[in-house]
């Protein structure tokens, strides 16, 4: 064996680490997907669906940067992060479907595809933060920071979930989200503490995102409060390091569960699967 090729090991071992091989096989293959006794299957399914929808829609927004990012290097970084989240969505939607098959639209598709491509906007449960359209790079970094800080804190708790599948999904996600948060935080600090122009735009991006923070934390119990405190502490640290101001903006009123941005997003994301419902990948 030669030792001067860093990529040699790629051709060896198994290929389970590939996100997408030639076959779109069951993402939960090999796992015990029975619902543990004492766990409410419908409730578990609902949690997985919500978490999966957040990841799916956020992933789509990140993919929109591909071919439009300010630097090639960041384009790849954003695509990597989007792909991580798409992987989380696959696992979570598949888990939701296994726990409560009644959630899955009756189409001739795998469970995850049926959930992703054959539900209407009103059946999606993602937070509005991930739907928001457009925005510049600073806005996207502010959103990614808020999203990954919140989701990382959430996944760190889910590692102790009574459901063994969700536990495994969370453990994998924690490593990914730690990197996503790091990536976003570095950009927020760099832009916030950069030139006058970059500072101004970073602050504007943060202000734009902030009204959608409160809806991430709708729980009332002690653990929900601890989650919010953890989130606030991380955000305060990044905001201070980036010489930015914590926005004090009132949350947007909850008129309907989604913004007007979700439907156009779904129309694009679902168009191929719906145009060719019997296609195989």
């Amino acid at each position: 064996m030669s030792f001067d090729n860093a990529y040699e090991a790629l051709t060896e071992d198994n290929d389970t680490r590939w996100a997408f091989g030639t076959g779109f096989t069951d993402p939960l293959a090999g796992m015990d997907t029975s619902v543990p006794s004492g766990v409410d299957a419908a409730e578990l399914a609902r949690s997985c669906l919500w978490l999966g929808d957040d990841a799916l829609i956020m992933s789509h927004r990140l993919q929109e940067w591909v071919a439009a990012a300010p630097e090639l290097e960041d384009e790849v970084a954003l695509a990597n992060i989007g792909l991580d989240l798409l992987g989380q969505a696959r696992l979570l939607l598949a888990r939701a479907a296994k726990a409560d098959p009644a959630l899955v639209p009756a189409v001739n598709q795998s469970d995850e595809d049926a959930l992703a491509f054959f539900r209407a906007a009103e059946d999606f449960h993602n937070v509005r933060l991930v739907e928001l359209a457009g925005g510049d790079f600073a806005f996207s970094m502010a959103r990614l920071l808020v999203f990954s800080t919140w989701r990382l804190a959430l996944f760190q708790r889910l590692v102790d979930s009574p459901d063994q599948v969700l536990t495994a999904i969370a453990a994998k996600g924690v490593k990914e989200l730690t990197y996503h948060r790091d990536y976003a935080a570095r950009w927020v600090v760099r832009l916030g503490d950069g030139t006058d122009l970059s500072h101004e735009r970073m602050q504007a991006g943060l202000d734009e995102v902030w009204p959608y923070v409160d809806e991430l934390f709708d729980g009332e119990n002690e653990d929900d409060k601890a989650l919010r405190e953890e989130f606030d502490a991380v955000m305060a640290q990044v905001i201070t390091a980036g010489a930015l101001k914590q926005p004090y903006l009132r949350p947007v009123p909850t008129a309907g569960r989604h913004t007007e941005h979700l439907e156009p997003l779904l129309a694009e994301m679902q168009s191929v699967a719906r145009a060719h419902p019997d296609a195989t990948w």
Partner: peptide, 19 residues
């Protein structure tokens, strides 16, 4: 330069731009 899992040395793999 990347050192692979089996590699003993860091090997040049390419270049990039960064601030």
């Amino acid at each position: 330069f990347v050192r692979g899992k089996r590699g003993l040395n860091h090997v040049h793999v390419g270049s990039l731009h960064a601030a």
